[in-house]
């Protein structure tokens, strides 16, 4: 079973994206975090357990408490960074070139996906894993 972390505060988007993902593959677990802080806490917990590692991370940028950028800062600072093999996709409603440029400069970011996360895109990601 594949595990995906979905970090996004927009409940309706989370509901719809989960639905999309499950439509493509039933053999998938979607773990939802409403902000960067909660996601970081989770990642810190599982850092020692490779069997619990997510297969991919989907990260929104605009979130309360700890936004996507702050998350990326903290994420890269994780001790002995164990998540090198985990692809991280920014999934944002932003179409700002500034944010895309900024994300391009961050090595842990695999790709910048503009919302919505459509079936075809998810399928492609799944096949690349």
């Amino acid at each position: 079973m594949k595990k995906f972390m979905l970090i996004d505060d927009d409940e309706i988007f989370v509901f719809l994206t989960k639905k999309t993902i499950l439509k493509v593959s039933a053999d998938v677990e979607v773990q939802v975090f409403a902000d960067g802080q909660q996601a970081i806490s989770h990642l810190q917990c599982i850092a020692g357990h490779t069997n619990l590692f997510p297969d991919a991370i989907f990260l929104d940028l605009n979130m309360p408490v700890m936004d996507g950028w702050e998350f990326l800062d903290e994420y890269q600072k994780l001790e002995d960074f164990p998540f090198n093999e985990v692809p991280l996709y920014i999934v944002s409603s932003s179409i700002s070139p500034y944010e895309m440029d900024r994300s391009a400069g961050i090595p842990v970011v695999t790709e910048f996906i503009i919302k919505p996360l459509v079936k075809e895109k998810f399928l492609e990601i799944l096949e690349n894993l």
Binding site: F13, N62, S92, S94, I95, Y98, P116
Partner: peptide, 14 residues
């Protein structure tokens, strides 16, 4: 622009 893009585009995408 970022906020417009997030706060308006977000709901529209939904």
């Amino acid at each position: 622009c970022n906020v417009v893009s997030h706060n308006l585009r977000g709901p529209l995408i939904n």
